[in-house]
């Protein structure tokens, strides 16, 4: 399996993913210098500067979540069916390896690449605020949960790629992500404020279909301490169940569900790949 992992990593490098990594690194580095640039241009006290740094860090963490997920989707969506169609697996499949080894090897390769990227980006974000005298350890505490984003999306894209071409697999994965984002950011407030039962059920369902909101909460509680005053505050009035619906607390089972979701998606993809004809 290590051969497949190494091959997947080399392929990721070949596909100029490294160039993307570099551009995002530069973007993250530049982002953190914006508060200082604003301070120097428009003035402001130290407290305003710190709030600016905190916002840049929070935005940077969001960027890392987004770009590492996109990278994982791009690399995983074309890993199975597209490679079969292009003929890359024609000489590899007859080798004495199980199909699940090939599948898992590709998954591990992409995940290692995505994790390395996300860690590198986090390190850059941390270093660039640290050199300005404002180190933020919160992003390191959030990193294990941030890494779950590319794992979640990559696993889903790989499972879909076991029977779909690259463009369709990535399209469905992005659509699932968009649905989860829409449900959490738009449907949830509407369903909560207007107390629409059907919409609340849809939001609840979306978390089962793709636990992105669950992941968001897991990351959020690690970086909440640097939230500027007034950000992320819960509504003060309303029925307790509606308030809880609007701002669900993190449960111990959340991480277990995300883990289970990833394992099941991985297994489903592996079984489909194992049972399908390859030609």
């Amino acid at each position: 399996m290590s051969v497949i992992v190494a091959l997947t990593l080399k392929e990721a490098m070949r596909r100029r993913a490294f160039l993307g990594t570099l551009i995002i690194l530069i973007g993250l580095y530049g982002l953190t210098f914006l508060p200082r640039a604003f301070k120097e241009a428009f003035g402001g006290d130290q407290q305003q500067f710190e709030v600016g740094v905190n916002l840049a860090v929070l935005f940077g963490v969001d960027m890392i979540k987004f770009f590492s997920s996109v990278l994982a989707i791009l690399l995983c969506a074309g890993a199975i069916t597209a490679e079969i169609e292009r003929g890359y697996l024609a000489a590899i499949l007859p080798r004495p390896i199980h199909r699940w080894e090939l599948y898992l090897g590709k998954w591990l390769g992409v995940m290692l690449f995505s994790a390395a990227n996300a860690t590198l980006w986090t390190a850059m974000l941390w270093a660039s605020v640290a050199v300005q005298g404002e180190p933020r350890a919160e992003m390191w505490r959030a990193l294990p949960y941030v890494l779950l984003y590319p794992v979640l999306y990559g696993t889903l894209a790989l499972a879909l790629s076991s029977f779909l071409g690259a463009s369709i697999a990535s399209m469905f994965t992005v659509a699932a992500g968009a649905f989860a984002y829409f449900a959490d950011h738009f449907l949830r407030p509407i369903a909560g404020f207007f107390d629409v039962r059907l919409l609340q059920q849809m939001v609840w369902l979306s978390e089962w279909v793709l636990p992105m909101a669950v992941l968001k909460r897991l990351v959020q509680i690690r970086v909440d301490t640097i939230l500027p005053p007034g950000f992320g505050e819960r509504p003060r009035f309303g029925r307790p169940e509606v308030l809880e619906f609007l701002n669900p607390p993190v449960q111990n089972t959340d991480i277990a569900y995300v883990g289970l979701y990833i394992v099941i998606a991985l297994l489903v993809g592996a079984v489909i790949f194992w049972r399908r004809d390859v030609q």
Partner: peptide, 15 residues
């Protein structure tokens, strides 16, 4: 069987 088998595919794309 695969251990003792060598195969050259008709349509291939090598890395």
């Amino acid at each position: 069987a695969k251990r003792k088998l060598g195969f050259l595919p008709e349509k291939f794309q090598f890395h």
